[in-house]
Amino acid sequence: MQRHVISVLVENSPGVLSRVAGLFSGRGFNIHSLNVAPSHEEGVSHMTITTFGDSSIIEQIMKQLHKIVPVLKVVEYEETPAVEREMMFLKVQADGPNRGEILRTVEVFRCKVVDVGHNEMTIEATGNHEKLEAIIALFQRFGIKELARTGSLAMKRSKKQID
């Protein structure tokens, strides 16, 4: 089952999030991540949903999303080239001897240290899904104490050529 990223533009009416979430739970589709925040347009929110499923399930998800009354637009980024990023905070165990190595890893992945405590560090990382998975795997050995991810954001790429 392939991972799919779907953008949904919705009218910002009350309950619209539960309409979308309820569609997934009610029909047995799975939500891997869901991100929602206001868009540039007043009264319109942009949701980014990542999900897993074969093409017929994704087709149903797209159609069902579109059927929800306050949904304005549904785009799936399989065919359409898109930029995709996700952000996370990662709190790792950072005792004396490990600190140097943690900081080197932070640098290699172009992460940021946003908070330092007595024996732990909080790291901010941004990247696509795969990059964040790789970062998590690498930090695992230091001991991850807490993790928070935003879920993916996606946007269609602009045309590079003039038609």
Binding site: P14, G15, S18, R19, G22
Partner: peptide
């Protein structure tokens, strides 16, 4: 009731 009937109506309003 809006929450309860969300999946069994075409649409609902409060």
């Amino acid at each position: 009731i809006v929450g309860i009937t969300r999946p069994c109506t075409k649409h609902n309003f409060l």
